[in-house]
Amino acid sequence: MSTAATLAALALAGLPAARELRRTPRNARFRQQAPGRFAELSQGHTHYDWLGPERGAVMVCVHGLTTPSYVWLGLARHLVAMGFRVLVYDLYGRGYSDAPRGPQTPGFFTRQLEDLLAHEGLTDDLTLAGYSMGGAIAAHWGIANPDRLRRLILLAPAGMGHQVGPVARFCTEWPLTGDWLFHMAYPTQFARTARAAAHADSSVDDIAGLQMAELRRRGFLRSVLSSLRGTLRRDTEEAHRALHKARVPVAAIWGRDDTVIPLRAMGRLAEWNRDARHVVIDGAGHGLPWTHTEQVAEAIRDTWEGPTV
């Protein structure tokens, strides 16, 4: 290979790193821009906030692969009206939380959740709500803490069949080459999906702009790829069978038109936990927490009839 070709190859290989350096670092100055609060936990700073009455029954909300805690803000207003005290937080590598390196496995995320609960002094039982990948995280936390889990609410939960595009599938399966391709190609795919959200009804203001902001933050892409490999490649059968055995009440809310977590996933959960209750929202896709907020709130209200204090 000629010197020119070698230099060109090195420059091409270094493009993802060069792009990453141009993104906003997650440092103290970055955190000063954030609403809410921060906890310095064992794996890094975690951004979180409380919504609702101090004496309300606690509901902890875990978001999905690419949408930080703001995804819950529209729905949280309804949960607060039901009497819940709602805790929302950003998973590592999303929103305003740090983006520590390392495999983002279910254990990685459940440790973050356990650290945050300990930081906030939450030792009593609670309701856990998980959206998309957050549903898988919530289920894994639940099998380690069935006595603390009052009930589990799942919104389009992952772990029963997750649809990803061909680029993401290739990148998940192939290290090195997959890393390079993901950092170069995924932002375009992500931006296209985010812009499409701008035309949908939303209970979260400027959700498209909030999603696009993730692409400008250092560690986001690396974290998403690590989660695809470490968490979303695994199914949650063992967790849900254990939750059923422990008699933890589970309700799942699905979007009939969801193409990310197809409705057939409902059948797998029903097989693993025959006591789980299901609600299907017509016309809803994968963004149901912010596009069909009132219907989701109604499903939670009808299924659980509010918090039990």
Rank of each mutant, 00 (worst) to 15 (best):
A8V: 05
L10T: 11
L10F: 08
A11L: 13
G14A: 15
P16D: 09
A18Y: 12
R19C: 05
R23Y: 03
P25F: 01
R29L: 13
F30L: 05
P35M: 09
F38G: 02
L41K: 08
G44C: 10
H45W: 15
T46G: 06
L51C: 14
L51E: 13
P53Y: 07
G56M: 06
A57W: 04
L65N: 03
T67Y: 14
P68H: 13
P68G: 12
S69L: 04
S69D: 01
V71F: 13
V71E: 03
W72K: 11
A76M: 03
M82C: 09
F84W: 13
R85Y: 06
R85N: 11
L87N: 07
L91T: 06
L91Y: 04
G93F: 04
R94A: 10
G95K: 01
S97I: 08
S97Q: 07
A99E: 05
G102R: 09
G102A: 08
T105N: 06
P106G: 01
D124E: 15
D125I: 07
T127V: 13
T127S: 07
T127M: 06
A129N: 02
I137S: 01
H140S: 10
H140T: 03
I143G: 00
P146A: 08
R150D: 14
R151C: 09
I153F: 14
L154K: 03
L155V: 04
M160I: 07
Q163T: 15
G165C: 07
P166R: 02
L176R: 15
T177V: 14
G178Q: 01
G178P: 04
D179V: 08
W180S: 05
L181P: 04
L181E: 01
H183R: 07
Y186F: 15
Q189M: 13
A191N: 06
R192V: 11
T193R: 15
S203R: 05
G209I: 07
A213L: 10
L225F: 03
L225N: 00
S227N: 12
S227D: 10
G230Y: 06
E238N: 09
E238A: 14
R241D: 03
L243C: 05
H244Y: 11
V248P: 00
R256L: 09
D258R: 02
I261N: 03
L263Q: 08
A265M: 11
M266C: 11
R274C: 13
H286L: 02
H286R: 04
H286P: 05
L288C: 04
T291Y: 07
H292V: 02
T293S: 10
Q295G: 06
E305W: 15
